[in-house]
């Protein structure tokens, strides 16, 4: 592992959707060449954290440094420049449906480089080879299966050879064999290109196969951040529940429960006492 500065540094990140706090004092560091998995149940804050790392949301407070740059202090131009060194494989693929697979993959090179069109063509087909989609460049996204769309999205995400690759639920909706091939691809990309790769997932098999370290998010907080073995052997009940796919019975607050049933405003609970009392 390299001694270079971290690829990602998050310090005391807090964020809210309206009055609701979604991330609470999240801090983490991703090292160069590391595969870092962010996992947690639905609503744990995984996607919100990913959106912050991509610079798509502004936090209520806290600092995010990507490849050494504090993203909330960057100009739009500098952010665009930084994004050329980041790749994102979106959960849905997010391919442009009006463009062929090849044009989708070539798009970042055409937009952000001055490379000759012959070079762009070779790089595009090279990436299709890497994701085992050789010869599919002329197809339209609508002609691809779910697994092929994921792989085409990977090809586009890595076409600029990013230093940092984000993968949002890479195995979601795929059969186990195809999901495993995506895991292998993530491992090969890291080993060959030395990328730092951040994977957001709730797929445990995939996590244990690819992760160097795992960050477990729970209700917007970092419940644990450690190696695969340490997480597996954690004595923490909530982590074990997550690993063993056990559902948790939420503790009941009788007052809140009654208010919900009676349709009274839940929000009152979070307001300062002075406002509730009309002071």
């Amino acid at each position: 592992m390299s001694t270079d500065p971290p690829s990602v540094e998050v310090i005391n990140l807090n964020t809210h959707y309206g009055d609701r706090q979604v991330l609470k004092n999240v801090s983490l560091t991703v090292k160069p060449g590391e595969i870092f998995v962010i996992m947690g149940g639905s609503g744990s804050g995984k996607t919100t954290l990913l959106n912050h790392l991509l610079g798509l949301l502004r936090p209520s407070s806290g600092t995010i440094r990507i490849l050494g740059r504090e993203i909330n202090a960057l100009s739009a131009l500098d952010m665009q420049d930084l994004r050329t060194r980041m790749g994102v494989a979106f959960q849905s693929g997010a391919l442009f449906s009006s463009m062929s697979v090849g044009d989708n993959i070539a798009l970042p090179l055409r937009e952000h480089t001055n490379l000759d069109e012959t070079t762009i063509g070779i790089v595009t087909r090279l990436k299709l080879e890497v994701v085992s989609l050789a010869g599919f460049e002329h197809l339209m996204p609508s002609e691809l299966s779910g697994g092929m769309i994921k792989r085409a999205a990977f090809a586009r995400a890595i076409v600029m050879d990013p230093r940092l690759l984000f993968c949002d639920e890479p195995s979601a909706g795929l059969d186990p064999v195809v999901a495993s091939s995506i895991d292998d691809l993530i491992l090969r990309l890291r080993d060959a290109m030395g990328m730092s790769i951040i994977v957001v997932t709730h797929d445990l098999d995939s996590t244990f196969k690819i992760a160097d370290r795992i960050c477990v998010l729970d209700q917007g907080e970092v419940l644990a951040l450690d190696t695969v073995d340490a997480i597996r052997n954690s004595p923490n009940e909530r982590i074990q529940n997550l690993l063993n796919r056990r559902t948790e019975e939420a503790e009941i607050d009788p007052d809140a429960y009654l208010r919900r049933l009676l349709g009274e405003k839940e929000k009152l609970r979070d307001e300062p006492a002075s406002r509730r009392n009309g002071l």
């Binding site: 480089t113 490379l115 012959t118 070079t119 070779i122 790089v123 090279l126 990436k127 076409v159 050879d161």
Partner: peptide, 11 residues
């Protein structure tokens, strides 16, 4: 060497 470098060698 990145992919554009490899592409130059391929060509």
């Amino acid at each position: 060497i990145d992919s554009s470098g490899i592409a130059s060698l391929v060509e």
